[in-house]
Amino acid sequence: MTGVGAADAATPSTAGVAASASTASVTASATNSVSNSVSKQAPPRGRLAATASPLYRTGTLNASCAAGQIRAGSAASYRNFMTQVNRCLNLAWKTQFRKAKLPFAQPVLRFTTTKVGSPCGRWPSGAGGYYCSTNRTIYIGVFRDVLKNPFGPNHVQFMAHEYAHHVQQLGGIMSYYGQSTWRARTSTKLAFSRRIELQADCLGSAFLRQVADDVSLEQEQWDSMVEWTARNGHKTWPTNDHGKGPSQAYWMNRGFNSGSPSACNTWTASARSVA
């Protein structure tokens, strides 16, 4: 789930993939740091930022993640697990941005037990968390219903999806989205929202593929996740701003099967595949 703030569009707009979240009254933030590699270039602007991102040419994600386990009902173990996953994502995407010769900065990570607002607006309905582009913060809800599910790969996919919105922000894709949907008709806004959300599904799944062994994800379990999404993935989003269940499943599989951002260019895909 992503929020586009005033830095990217004249009015806030929301979209994104919700997973469930959890219970505890603690907030935490990851340090925001900028990579120091030499010869950086500004990210592409406008449509090219989305359709021809240098990130598509950076090869497979190089990722590993000893995140530990979540104990059912334990807010502390959930926060620890998600913090470790965020660190793994920082390392993986820092490498991809270096390959693309683009500047990189870590997002802020904030845990919350209430559905807090942000510079991007209210907590999106139905979401377990979201990303706000204005303050580059990932909000993760620590809610009671999430703590009932200790299956780590589900939560990795959720975190990696929200992190993918940060990748889109750094790569200029989020700015293109905001510029294109400002003052656009509703059908256009929804079409752009689906492309940005389905790309995040794909990028998140590419990361999950690379850490599958670390988080004990078996192929049959992945297949079950995809099948569930195909049947149910759209039910939280009645306006179809995230794509129908089969579309979500399609892009999840593309990312997982490739392990690379190259499979995740939703911006040049046919309208049918992002329906």
Rank of each mutant, 00 (worst) to 15 (best):
N232V: 02
A10T: 15
H166G: 05
Y130Q: 01
T266N: 06
Y139N: 04
A49V: 01
N62T: 15
D223E: 13
S25Y: 06
G5F: 03
Q179P: 01
S193Q: 13
H234G: 15
N154H: 08
A18S: 13
A7F: 05
S133L: 08
A18W: 02
P261Y: 06
A230S: 14
I173N: 00
A10G: 14
S262C: 08
R57A: 15
P238S: 11
R79P: 03
A15V: 13
T51N: 06
S258Q: 12
N80Y: 02
R231C: 05
S77M: 10
R71K: 13
K148W: 00
L147I: 13
T113Q: 12
S247L: 04
D8W: 03
N36V: 12
Y56I: 08
A10Y: 11
G152D: 06
G129I: 04
A100P: 04
P261H: 08
V167K: 01
Q69F: 09
S64E: 05
E227P: 00
Q96S: 14
S22F: 08
K244L: 15
G204F: 02
R209M: 09
S118N: 12
R45K: 14
K40I: 12
N240M: 06
W237T: 05
C88H: 00
T134I: 04
K115L: 11
N135M: 10
K189Y: 03
A49Q: 01
L198I: 06
T137L: 05
A75M: 09
R144F: 02
A127H: 04
T113F: 01
L208W: 00
V38E: 13
Q106Y: 04
H242G: 11
A160D: 04
P44C: 10
V34S: 15
F207M: 07
F192K: 03
S193I: 03
F192C: 02
A184C: 10
P12W: 12
A127Y: 03
N232F: 11
T23N: 13
S22T: 12
T236G: 14
G46A: 13
A206R: 01
V85F: 11
F81M: 07
H242F: 09
V211T: 06
Y250T: 14
V146T: 09
K101R: 15
I196Y: 00
S193D: 07
R194N: 06
P150Q: 07
D223R: 09
R87V: 07
M252R: 02
Q221T: 10
H242K: 11
A271V: 12
F104C: 08
T14P: 06
A269N: 11
R183E: 05
N80M: 07
A105D: 10
Q219S: 14
A24Y: 01
W251C: 08
G121D: 03
K189Q: 12
A24C: 13
S35W: 02
W222H: 04
Q199P: 04
A206N: 00
R122P: 05
H161F: 03
K101H: 13
M159V: 09
Q179W: 04
S22Q: 06
N265I: 04
